[in-house]
Write a protein that binds this DNA or RNA. Structure first.
Lengths: 206, 206
DNA sequence: TGTACATCAGTGAACGCGCGTTCACTGATGTAC
DNA sequence: TGTACATCAGTGAACGCGCGTTCACTGATGTAC
């Protein structure tokens, strides 16, 4: 019973020999997710077609469905990836309030305002995500929780309850301020919006 | 020289006899703008086609270009109208901080969260407006200024400078909080987000 | 080491559909006489 | 008061286009022998 022959057969049946490098397809898939993130944040989800997304990744439209079951499927994975990346960047911040102070200055900077493609997915896509299917909203919810945890840990590790509320205040005012500053036409006023946003957001650091 | 005959002729030439009620076309145009506001807030700007917008107003697609030069033209007018309406609703609020307290409770309510079509245009459309042409962004900027003036007047009429900054804080945190609560899947958590948003926003009333 | 070959990531043309926009037309309107 | 008519708000079919999706095919890959 058993023995090497049976194991060999089972192995052959369940997992045929990989012709391509094992990580090759995974890498392509991840590349699509990341370039789609940039494109979505720049042109919107509705504003980005499959053919454009695939060209961004150096591929043609036909290959798309070998990686994702639908555009909605891609969107959900992009949202998850974008928030994971943002959570990661919070983890890289210095501990305590100093880290959050630095985050604020970078987040509410003219550079971030003028480069949505490389910036915060919430500021660029939140209200479009609100109109997405449940799967995408769920991906956002999970990702946002992780980010709020990171912020809360830097605010008051000894009091998780109130730190969570303050973390939400800090995040929502940062997102709202950046969105408003991106819409304001007059560059001078837009700069003032950012400055006042930093002052206002500091209320949640104290 | 002149006399009634010349005046009569000029009048005839400049302004041919109106065959329809003078306000009829204006009323239709306003109806399109208002129903489009609802539709945009529900399905997004990119997500709302001309034929659907016109059907909402009880018309067919062909009539659209008798009222607007393009979809972008309509969007700019809708944004202006939506913010005018919001400014009007601020004007109807009781004077002083009490009015803003009432606004907050209504704005960050489950009812508002669950009915974007009847709600705040900023929360529903801000990041889509950021990707619109300059004319639309300009319309938003003008409308938002008027709203911030109304909020500031209720905060500290004697100190316009700092009141303006606080008004911006109140508005941005309200918008950001509502957007986040609309994306959170778990209804219980979404309710908590609203409650914490009210607490957080109160910091700008003090 | 060299060759025949099974695999499968990726290609590119095609599908039906809804988009924004155009236009020849219809028919309700109120006016002129 | 009744009728002929100029006006023009609104109709609805059509335009080219890009959308999301499908599919028969291609050709680079690494394996087996």
């Amino acid at each position: 019973m058993g023995g090497w022959c049976g194991q060999w057969l089972a192995g052959r049946l369940e997992e045929p020999v990989a012709r391509y490098d094992k990580v090759h397809k995974q890498a392509t898939r991840q590349r699509i997710i990341e370039t789609a993130g940039h494109r979505f944040k720049q042109d919107g989800i509705d504003g980005s077609g499959i053919a454009t997304l695939m060209a961004d990744a150096g591929l043609t439209n036909g290959a798309f469905y070998a990686h994702f079951s639908s555009k909605d499927d891609l969107v959900a994975h992009v949202v998850a990836d974008q928030l994971d990346t943002q959570a990661e960047s919070f983890r890289a911040l210095p501990a305590g309030r100093a880290g959050l102070e630095g985050f604020l200055r970078e987040y509410l900077s003219p550079q971030h305002r003028d480069n949505p493609a490389d910036g915060c997915p919430s500021a660029a896509l939140l209200d479009e995500i609100a109109r997405c299917p449940a799967g995408t909203k769920h991906a956002y919810t999970d990702g946002a929780q992780a980010i709020l945890d990171e912020i809360a840990a830097r605010l008051a590790p000894e009091d998780p309850q109130s730190a969570r509320a303050k973390a939400l205040g800090l995040y929502t005012i940062a997102v709202g301020t950046l969105q408003v500053s991106r819409v304001v036409s007059d560059p001078k006023v837009a700069d003032e919006v950012l400055e006042q946003g930093i002052q206002n957001a500091r209320m949640f650091l104290g």
